[in-house]
């Protein structure tokens, strides 16, 4: 591990935080199929990588 690895790890933590934030935002805004006191089917979110492809 190097300092760059610490930085990568900080970014990893950030990505995990971002998807959790997304999940939270969705839970707040979603309409549950039940009476509203339960998030019966908690929504989910994720981030994937793409290969870089310059736009025309």
């Amino acid at each position: 591990m190097s300092t760059t690895d610490t930085r990568l790890q900080v970014m990893w933590n950030r990505l995990l935080a971002v998807v959790e934030e997304q999940g939270q935002a969705l839970i707040r805004a979603a309409f549950s199929p039940s009476c509203a006191n339960a998030a019966i089917f908690p929504p989910a979110s994720l981030i994937c990588k793409a290969g870089c492809s310059p736009r025309p």
Binding site: M1, S2, T3, T6, V10, N13, R14
Partner: peptide, 26 residues
């Protein structure tokens, strides 16, 4: 982690500061 001690210290700060910032953003 095979880090110099100063770099280890820097890493500790980075992680804890990121934890706090992330909690705030969340």
């Amino acid at each position: 982690l095979e880090l110099e001690t100063v770099q280890a210290a820097y890493g500790v700060s980075e992680i804890v500061d990121e934890n706090m910032a992330a909690a705030g953003r969340m």
